[in-house]
């Protein structure tokens, strides 16, 4: 990834090994890729992104979150939801409603079948 050195400079706490970013779960990689894709189309720059993410982490710290790095991508996703909302790409209400639609779709999907939203 050509953008990786730039990201790592902006985000020194990004979980990485020698070869680049590492993830503990599939959703973490998806959240990471979404931020990368939005950045590539110019939705925000890495400085803005670092500020958004730092704000999320600072809020949680203020509430007594130990910030062990375990939840890095949980914070990442929160920051992504916020920046997408701030930039007018989605609204909080629509996002919430869509979460519920997915939960509903999951409940109605027999195990092992791809979970899809009904249109």
């Amino acid at each position: 990834m050509t953008t990786t050195p730039e990201i790592r400079a902006a985000l020194p706490d990004l979980p990485c090994d020698d070869a680049g970013p590492v993830f503990k779960a599939p959703w973490e990689a998806q959240a990471f890729a979404m931020a990368l894709a939005l950045h590539e189309r110019g939705a925000f720059n890495w400085k803005e992104w670092a500020r958004e993410l730092a704000a999320v982490i600072a809020e949680l710290k203020a509430r007594g979150d130990p910030d062990t790095g375990e939840d890095y991508y949980r914070h990442w996703l929160t920051a992504l939801e916020r920046i997408a909302t701030r930039k007018g790409l989605v609204t909080g209400e629509v996002l919430q409603a869509r979460c519920e639609q997915w939960a509903q779709a999951a409940r109605e999907t027999p195990h092992g079948q791809p979970i899809e939203l009904r249109r």
């Binding site: 998806q30 979404m34 996703l77 939801e81 997915w102 999951a106 092992g112």
Partner: peptide, 14 residues
Amino acid sequence: GSELSEMDLRVRAL
């Protein structure tokens, strides 16, 4: 049925 974690749901929604 199937189940998705909270984080999976949020990622899929966005």
